[in-house]
Design a protein around this nucleic acid. Structure first.
Length: 215
DNA sequence: TCTAAGATGGGT
DNA sequence: CCCATCTTAGAA
């Protein structure tokens, strides 16, 4: 692997990348890019292979929809920070905040293809035989990302996004996971994966038949 | 204060 | 199928 310290993992996009207005385009552009975490000098990183877009305006699935609370406050900042929250009391989920201040958009990172620090990830995942980072809750466990890091600047040196090394892939879209409560907005095709990648999460728990099919 | 529900994952 | 686990938001 050519991914070593001081090489591609440190080539970051600038702030403007995160300020874009179209969160679905941001979710697609994040595919193929690298999420990196540094804990006590230990680097773990993975290629983003699955994302979901959440829009503060007009999307009932978004935590910031129709309200502004302490938890979602970071979503209202300028893009390029992390929105991390605890799900089901157990799982730490990380989002990339996008758009300009006041527009509460974010992209949920749902799966990674591990590329750096794999042995560390394996240990943090208790030597599971399952994939190390194929799910929003498992990838944060593998990278040791926790809710207290919400608001972290993604242009800093704790958690960051590195530029894509290859863009030669097709993108498939489908409906988002676990958002049936959002009624008609649950039908939006705002989940994106890299076609053919083996590290995407399993299409799980769709109460409505057939809604997770990709095309 | 109280409580229901949740952008999940792993085991049976 | 079942359940762990706890914060958050909204109600009382």
């Amino acid at each position: 692997m050519i991914y070593k310290n001081n090489t591609p993992l440190y080539e970051r996009p600038d702030r403007s990348f995160f300020l874009r207005k179209d969160v679905t385009q941001a979710a697609k552009d994040l595919l193929g890019m690298i999420l990196v975490s540094s804990k006590n000098g230990v680097i773990t990183a993975g290629k983003i292979v699955e994302t979901e877009a959440y829009c503060g305006k007009g999307d009932k699935a978004c935590h910031a929809h129709g309200k502004r609370t302490p938890r979602t406050e970071v979503m209202y900042q300028d893009g390029g920070v992390a929105y991390i929250y605890l799900c089901y009391g157990i799982h730490h989920l990380i989002n990339i905040v996008t758009n300009v201040a006041g527009q509460a958009d974010a992209v949920l990172i749902r799966a990674l293809e591990p590329i750096e620090g794999i042995e560390v990830m394996r240990k943090r995942r208790n030597f599971t035989t399952a994939k190390l980072a194929s799910g929003p809750g498992t990838l944060t466990q593998a990278m040791d990302i926790k809710v207290h890091q919400t608001g972290t600047d993604l242009l800093g040196d704790e958690i960051w996004i590195a530029k894509s090394q290859e863009k030669e892939f097709e993108i498939l879209e489908g409906t988002r996971i676990g958002v049936d409560y959002a009624q008609e907005d649950a039908l939006r095709p705002w989940r994106f994966i890299i076609k053919g990648n083996k590290f995407v999460s399993k299409p799980i728990r769709s109460k409505k038949e057939g809604t997770t099919a990709f095309k």
